[in-house]
Nucleic acid binder design. Structure first.
Length: 816
RNA sequence: GCCCGGGUGGCGGAAUUGGUAGACGCAACGGACUUAAAAUCCGUUAUCCGAAAGGGUGUGCGGGUUCAAGUCCCGCCCCGGGCACCA
């Protein structure tokens, strides 16, 4: 009587073995090939959700696969512990954010352990601990000295009722989430990091990153948005200061029929002083949140200011407007408008009855009607005086030269990428290490006074940071002159913590440097796995920080992540699982019912990793059923005693077939996991092989030997996905040493050899028959066989055979 | 609005470099076992016509390239992710 599959017993025993043997704790071993395999660390929300299970399982499969390939694998885990949810919980329940966070971490850690991930827990990082964040404070002060950080005004969402700054997420339909008040744009001084100083490097290196998906690289390229254009100035009637604008289409300059400035622009304020309608309009423009999507989709509004600018080429006067879609903080706060050749300008001109002038014509001479449709292509200049007949490049250069000669403008490379604003007006984050002194202005906290520790015992009320009300935190002597001064109470954007944690895992306990020599061994990360939603911000900030650390002499590595896998979301009923929708599935319940292996297997089998995964309770049961079949197949086989080695000379055809299938499957699963990251097809291949083993049911000595070889291969190959059951079955097969220390099986090329191959015969591309031919058959012989097929004959009779295409080993297409 | 993905049976998906559309699994149906149910095992299953052999249609929609298109090109529709303070 064989033992039935009991997931809990099997899983706890396997986990105990790994813990006792410290299987996943790794040191630096220069004789071995290292493989650093990392997932984006989680925010400790307190409860594990299916998205976590998916991403961590994907990464665990890759980590365990590389270990089977003989590599020295590091897979660490930690906590992105600062952030808004802790403050929200504090407001709601009165628990201090630190206490809430630490208790969540403890809960989640034990849930992760139950899933059997191969983590080196000795390297755990928690970003809200001073030992961690002191080093980003340190780096910030270094950047300050290099001029890589600076302070300037920038816009925030201001809730006028709660008197507080809101995150974009807290703005719902333009209103504050708690107060329901209309949100306003407000400018306040904030700290910025000069990511634009690295824009070219961040852009150029994308061309040399074959391990990243093209989609992510394209998104980052577009985000950086390098453009070559001309910055030029328009004089303004009765003003001393000219208006400076940037354009990537200087060839359309003769088509400028109006200009627009931001509501906050000094020229707009000047008009508002004498015109109450304009004052009202400007006030309205402020009544919107600070999101780009809002700006791009809202109704484009504007008003004429009654001021004119002078066209720099024609001397003609063009009217100046104030518009809600121009922002003061981007570029110069002013734009030139070419309604004939810019979609937004065209619509705006139509709406406000502004003139539209065609200055570009299609190269092929086609006539267009500029009043009917905007023309966006590059073409030939018309209605442009001396520049008529020039193409884009000719006009660009001629006009740029003209401005450079007259000193009225110059060629300029521009980026869509803006510097990174890191100030947050929140409590639960890393304190920005700055002291404000009336004499010395903003002074960075000296190295020997770091870290600036965030007080953990506080009461969070919901309007503004509690730090502001703590004199023991705020009051500090100026590090330069010693006079009474005040600490910065803003904290860092939590993206700062996640921009360097991957390097710190190499040396989490280093207390005299941000990174030490161990980083040289482990970095860069070989495989990074995380959500596609981080394709731009987190990944770009991390690439930036890696370079800042490099230039600080902390590492030689420029790119932090060699290979990137972006996984899709977990959906239920077609929508993202969320508490609000009430469509969540609790992993803990499923683990209790079926075990961790079943949950892991379903996650890997249900969809390819990059795609969204539709949750299915039935599918989970199917995975459980497969594991039961797998268990009884191996236990059943082992129960009939040991099997000998395969003797290839005594195998009959069906034994040879199973052996071929075994070695085909070893090759396929290795390729699926190692190269394609196609875990769903890897599982399917293992299922097919198990089906074939069960079908053979051959009790002879040779049959049992072939079955044993196949079963051992399946146990090893499925172990990255379902490590616990495989650990137990490996023992069941009589092995003394643990599965975790095994190697991936080798493919026996001889077993793959085949005498006959089936080919498909098409007539005019339609399937009409199948023929079986020798693998090394000549083309002529294949052709003759194909033409001889009875059904094929029916379709070609009475027609001339015009052409025959033979694709070796695949098909024959007869064209009649 | 802009940038990036996706759309294939009743469902999740497979088809790796333009070469047999639907692997593997779920569900459903039929059968075996059972007093019965569950579990397990065997079989059928894109769709339409046909007793069968076989044939027609079919990868979101409309066009195109090719001996051959789920795959490449052009134009649409719908769904998802990101848009700089959710992480």
């Amino acid at each position: 009587m064989s033992t039935p599959y009991n997931p809990e017993t099997v899983e706890l025993a396997a986990q105990k073995h790994w813990t006792d043997a410290r299987s996943f704790e790794v040191g630096e071993d220069p004789d071995k090939d290292k493989y650093y395999c990392l997932t984006m660390f989680p925010y400790p929300s307190g409860k594990l959700h299916m998205g976590h299970v998916r991403v961590f399982t994907i990464n665990d499969v890759i980590a365990r696969y590389h270990r089977l390939q003989g590599m020295h694998v590091l897979q660490p885990m930690g906590w992105d512990a600062f952030g808004m949810p802790a403050e929200n919980a504090a407001i709601k329940r009165g628990v201090p954010p630190a206490k809430w966070t630490y208790s969540n971490i403890a809960d989640m850690r034990s849930q992760f352990k139950r899933l059997g991930y191969a983590y080196d827990w000795t390297r755990e990082i928690t970003t809200c601990k001073p030992e961690y964040y002191r080093w980003e404070q340190w780096l910030f002060t270094k950047m300050f000295k290099k001029g890589l950080v600076y302070r300037k005004n920038s816009v925030v969402n201001w809730d006028p009722v709660d008197q507080t700054v809101l995150a974009n997420e807290q703005v719902i339909d333009g209103r504050g989430w708690r107060s329901d008040a209309l949100v306003e744009r407000r400018e306040i001084p904030q700290w910025f990091m000069k990511i634009t100083a690295y824009a070219d490097e961040l852009l150029d290196e994308l061309d040399r990153m074959p391990g990243w998906p093209d989609s992510v690289k394209t998104m980052q390229r577009n985000w950086i948005g390098r453009s070559e254009g001309v910055e030029l100035s328009f004089d303004v009637v009765d003003e001393v200061e000219p208006l400076t604008v940037y354009t990537t289409r200087p060839d359309t300059l003769m088509g400028v029929t109006y200009m627009a400035v931001a509501a906050e622009h000094p020229l707009a304020s000047k008009s508002a002083a004498t015109n109450p309608d304009i004052a009202t309009f400007i006030q309205e423009c402020r009544q919107t949140d600070a999101q780009e999507a809002t700006l791009e989709t809202m109704e484009k509004k504007g008003m004429a200011l009654g001021i004119s600018a002078i066209h720099p080429l024609t001397g003609e006067e063009v009217p100046l407007w104030v518009a809600n879609f121009v922002l003061m903080s981007y570029g110069t706060g002013a734009v030139m408008a070419v309604p004939g050749h810019d979609a937004r300008d065209w619509e705006f001109a139509k709406k406000h009855d502004l003139p539209i002038r065609q200055v570009i014509a299609p190269t092929d001479g086609t006539e267009i009607d500029i009043e009917e449709a905007v023309y966006l292509e590059r073409g030939v200049l018309v209605n442009s005086g001396d520049y008529n007949g020039l193409d884009f490049d000719g006009a660009f250069n001629a006009i740029a030269d003209h401005f450079e000669k007259t000193g009225r403008g110059s060629r300029k490379v521009n980026y869509r990428l803006r510097d990174w604003g890191v100030s947050r007006q929140r409590y639960w984050g890393t304190p920005i290490p700055i002291i404000y002194c009336d004499e010395c202005d903003a002074v960075p906290v000296p190295e020997d006074q770091l870290p600036v520790v965030l007080p953990e015992h506080v009461e969070v009320k919901g309007c503004g940071s509690p730090l502001k009300d703590m004199p023991e935190f705020v009051n500090a002597p100026c590090p330069k002159c010693g006079k009474d001064a005040r600490r910065e109470t803003d904290t860092f954007d939590t993206f700062v913590e996640s921009s360097w944690y991957f390097a710190r895992y190499a040396c989490p306990d280093s207390d005299d440097a941000m990174l030490d020599d161990r980083t040289k061994y482990w970095t860069p990360v070989d495989q990074y796995t995380g959500g596609i939603e981080h394709a731009i911000l987190h990944l770009l900030y991390s690439r930036f920080f890696q370079r800042v650390m490099r230039d600080e002499g902390l590492t030689d590595v420029s790119e932090p992540f060699t290979n990137l896998l972006t996984q899709g979301m977990v959906l239920k009923d077609g929508a993202k699982m969320s508490k609000a929708k009430g469509n969540t599935v609790d992993p803990a319940e499923l683990i209790e019912k079926y075990g961790a292996d079943t949950v892991r297997l379903f996650m890997m089998f249900a969809a390819p990793p990059e795609q969204a995964l539709e949750w299915s309770d039935e599918g989970v049961q199917g995975s459980f059923r497969f594991l039961k079949r797998f268990w009884s197949a191996v236990v059943g086989h082992a129960g009939t005693g040991p099997a000998g080695d395969v003797d290839v000379n005594v195998l009959n055809d069906s034994q040879k077939d199973l052996r071929r299938k075994t070695h085909q499957t070893i090759a396929k699963i290795g390729d699926d996991i190692g190269r394609r990251r196609s875990f769903n097809t890897a599982v399917a291949a293992a299922m097919e092989l198990l089906n074939a083993i069960n079908k053979l049911a051959d009790g002879s000595e040779a049959g049992r030997a072939v079955e044993r070889e196949a079963l051992e291969a399946v146990v090893v190959m499925l172990s990255p996905m379902v490590p616990h059951i495989c650990h137990a079955l490996w023992q069941e097969l009589g092995h003394e040493s643990a599965l975790i220390d095994q190697r991936w099986p080798d493919v026996d090329e001889n077993a793959l050899a085949l005498d006959l191959v089936e080919m498909v015969v098409q007539v005019n591309g339609k399937l009409r028959g199948r023929i079986s031919v020798a693998v090394d058959a000549a083309k002529d012989a294949i052709e003759a066989d194909a033409l001889a097929d009875e059904n094929v004959q029916r379709f070609i009779s009475g027609n001339d055979v015009r052409k025959v295409i033979v694709v070796p080993g695949r098909l024959v297409n007869i064209v009649v």
